[in-house]
Amino acid sequence: MKGNVIKYERDNIDTDVIIPGQYLKIHDYSELASHAMEGLDPQFHSKVKEGDFILSGKNFGCGSSREHAPIALSHSGIKAVLALSFARIFYRNAVDGAFLLPIEIEEDAYHGISEGDEIDIDVKLNEIKNLTKNQSYKMKPFSEIIGKIIEAGGLFKYKPD
Protein backbone atom coordinates (compact mmCIF):
# COMPACT_ATOMS: atom_id res chain seq x y z
CA MET A 1 0.00 0.00 0.00
CA LYS A 2 1.70 3.16 -1.25
CA GLY A 3 0.92 6.76 -0.43
CA ASN A 4 2.23 10.13 0.69
CA VAL A 5 2.52 11.25 4.27
CA ILE A 6 0.87 14.18 6.03
CA LYS A 7 2.82 14.60 9.24
CA TYR A 8 1.66 16.07 12.54
CA GLU A 9 4.67 16.00 14.82
CA ARG A 10 2.83 15.98 18.15
CA ASP A 11 1.26 13.64 20.70
CA ASN A 12 -2.36 13.33 21.83
CA ILE A 13 -4.19 14.34 18.65
CA ASP A 14 -7.69 14.08 20.06
CA THR A 15 -11.04 13.47 18.43
CA ASP A 16 -12.12 17.04 19.23
CA VAL A 17 -9.60 18.33 16.69
CA ILE A 18 -10.06 15.42 14.24
CA ILE A 19 -13.76 16.29 14.03
CA PRO A 20 -15.03 19.04 16.37
CA GLY A 21 -18.08 18.38 18.57
CA GLN A 22 -20.38 20.72 16.68
CA TYR A 23 -20.33 18.23 13.76
CA LEU A 24 -21.40 15.19 15.80
CA LYS A 25 -24.97 15.68 14.63
CA ILE A 26 -23.84 15.08 11.04
CA HIS A 27 -23.94 11.53 9.70
CA ASP A 28 -23.27 12.28 6.03
CA TYR A 29 -19.80 10.83 5.51
CA SER A 30 -18.59 13.24 2.81
CA GLU A 31 -19.77 16.26 4.80
CA LEU A 32 -17.87 14.94 7.82
CA ALA A 33 -14.79 14.55 5.62
CA SER A 34 -15.01 18.22 4.65
CA HIS A 35 -14.44 19.12 8.33
CA ALA A 36 -11.68 16.56 9.07
CA MET A 37 -8.79 17.87 11.19
CA GLU A 38 -10.45 21.29 11.27
CA GLY A 39 -9.48 21.86 14.90
CA LEU A 40 -5.76 21.48 14.14
CA ASP A 41 -5.16 22.06 10.44
CA PRO A 42 -7.76 24.08 8.51
CA GLN A 43 -5.74 23.36 5.30
CA PHE A 44 -6.13 19.58 5.67
CA HIS A 45 -9.21 19.28 3.46
CA SER A 46 -7.57 21.13 0.58
CA LYS A 47 -4.24 19.28 0.74
CA VAL A 48 -5.30 15.66 1.41
CA LYS A 49 -5.33 13.26 -1.55
CA GLU A 50 -6.89 9.83 -1.98
CA GLY A 51 -4.46 7.22 -0.61
CA ASP A 52 -2.55 9.55 1.74
CA PHE A 53 -1.38 8.53 5.20
CA ILE A 54 -1.23 10.52 8.44
CA LEU A 55 1.86 10.23 10.64
CA SER A 56 1.73 11.33 14.26
CA GLY A 57 3.02 10.75 17.79
CA LYS A 58 1.61 9.08 20.90
CA ASN A 59 -2.03 8.47 21.84
CA PHE A 60 -3.56 9.36 18.46
CA GLY A 61 -7.36 9.63 18.59
CA CYS A 62 -7.73 10.13 22.33
CA GLY A 63 -10.94 11.60 23.66
CA SER A 64 -14.43 10.75 22.57
CA SER A 65 -15.81 7.51 21.13
CA ARG A 66 -17.12 9.32 18.04
CA GLU A 67 -16.79 7.02 15.04
CA HIS A 68 -17.04 10.28 13.10
CA ALA A 69 -13.25 10.57 13.59
CA PRO A 70 -12.05 7.55 11.55
CA ILE A 71 -14.99 8.13 9.16
CA ALA A 72 -13.96 11.75 8.49
CA LEU A 73 -10.34 10.71 7.85
CA SER A 74 -11.24 7.68 5.76
CA HIS A 75 -13.68 9.62 3.58
CA SER A 76 -11.02 12.29 3.11
CA GLY A 77 -8.94 9.58 1.41
CA ILE A 78 -6.70 8.57 4.34
CA LYS A 79 -5.90 4.85 4.11
CA ALA A 80 -3.77 4.51 7.24
CA VAL A 81 -2.70 6.44 10.30
CA LEU A 82 0.84 5.72 11.50
CA ALA A 83 1.39 6.66 15.13
CA LEU A 84 3.61 5.82 18.08
CA SER A 85 0.44 4.67 19.88
CA PHE A 86 -3.35 4.92 19.60
CA ALA A 87 -6.20 5.58 21.99
CA ARG A 88 -8.32 2.47 22.34
CA ILE A 89 -11.71 3.50 20.95
CA PHE A 90 -10.27 5.22 17.88
CA TYR A 91 -8.18 2.10 17.25
CA ARG A 92 -11.05 -0.36 17.44
CA ASN A 93 -13.40 1.93 15.52
CA ALA A 94 -10.86 2.16 12.69
CA VAL A 95 -10.50 -1.63 12.56
CA ASP A 96 -14.01 -2.87 13.36
CA GLY A 97 -15.59 -0.42 10.91
CA ALA A 98 -12.84 -1.12 8.31
CA PHE A 99 -12.28 2.61 7.82
CA LEU A 100 -8.48 2.75 7.83
CA LEU A 101 -5.43 0.91 9.14
CA PRO A 102 -3.99 2.04 12.48
CA ILE A 103 -0.28 1.28 12.18
CA GLU A 104 1.84 1.42 15.31
CA ILE A 105 5.36 2.57 14.56
CA GLU A 106 8.62 3.04 16.44
CA GLU A 107 10.65 6.20 16.97
CA ASP A 108 12.82 5.54 13.86
CA ALA A 109 9.84 5.76 11.52
CA TYR A 110 8.34 8.70 13.42
CA HIS A 111 11.53 10.74 13.08
CA GLY A 112 12.69 9.27 9.75
CA ILE A 113 9.56 9.97 7.71
CA SER A 114 8.95 13.59 6.68
CA GLU A 115 5.91 15.45 5.40
CA GLY A 116 5.30 14.51 1.78
CA ASP A 117 7.48 11.37 1.76
CA GLU A 118 6.14 8.50 -0.30
CA ILE A 119 6.02 5.30 1.73
CA ASP A 120 4.98 1.72 1.08
CA ILE A 121 3.36 -0.21 3.94
CA ASP A 122 3.57 -4.00 3.88
CA VAL A 123 1.41 -5.40 6.69
CA LYS A 124 2.38 -8.99 5.83
CA LEU A 125 6.07 -8.29 6.42
CA ASN A 126 5.37 -5.63 9.10
CA GLU A 127 7.57 -3.29 7.15
CA ILE A 128 7.37 0.33 6.04
CA LYS A 129 9.58 1.42 3.13
CA ASN A 130 10.33 5.10 2.66
CA LEU A 131 10.58 5.35 -1.14
CA THR A 132 11.58 9.01 -1.01
CA LYS A 133 14.50 8.47 1.36
CA ASN A 134 15.28 4.84 0.58
CA GLN A 135 14.94 3.77 4.22
CA SER A 136 12.88 1.05 5.87
CA TYR A 137 11.37 0.67 9.31
CA LYS A 138 9.53 -2.03 11.24
CA MET A 139 5.89 -1.58 12.20
CA LYS A 140 4.49 -3.31 15.29
CA PRO A 141 2.57 -6.39 14.14
CA PHE A 142 -1.21 -6.42 14.62
CA SER A 143 -2.42 -8.62 17.47
CA GLU A 144 -4.05 -11.85 16.30
CA ILE A 145 -7.66 -10.70 16.55
CA ILE A 146 -6.95 -7.30 14.98
CA GLY A 147 -5.14 -8.99 12.09
CA LYS A 148 -8.07 -11.32 11.53
CA ILE A 149 -10.69 -8.55 11.63
CA ILE A 150 -8.65 -6.46 9.18
CA GLU A 151 -8.25 -9.44 6.88
CA ALA A 152 -11.98 -10.17 7.02
CA GLY A 153 -12.81 -6.54 6.15
CA GLY A 154 -14.32 -5.43 9.45
CA LEU A 155 -16.04 -6.89 12.49
CA PHE A 156 -19.27 -7.83 10.71
CA LYS A 157 -17.37 -9.95 8.19
CA TYR A 158 -15.19 -11.59 10.82
CA LYS A 159 -16.21 -15.08 11.91
CA PRO A 160 -14.94 -15.92 15.41
CA ASP A 161 -13.29 -19.39 15.65
Binding site: S65, R66, E67, P70, I89, R92, N93, D96, G97, G154, L155, F156
Partner: peptide, 10 residues
Protein backbone atom coordinates in the same frame (compact mmCIF):
# COMPACT_ATOMS: atom_id res chain seq x y z
CA UNK B 1 -16.84 0.55 28.49
CA UNK B 2 -17.44 2.95 25.62
CA UNK B 3 -17.62 1.76 22.02
CA UNK B 4 -18.15 3.27 18.55
CA UNK B 5 -21.14 2.91 16.24
CA UNK B 6 -20.02 -0.24 14.42
CA UNK B 7 -19.31 -2.07 17.68
CA UNK B 8 -22.61 -0.96 19.23
CA UNK B 9 -24.45 -2.10 16.08
CA UNK B 10 -22.70 -5.46 16.45
Amino acid sequence: AGLGHTDIAY
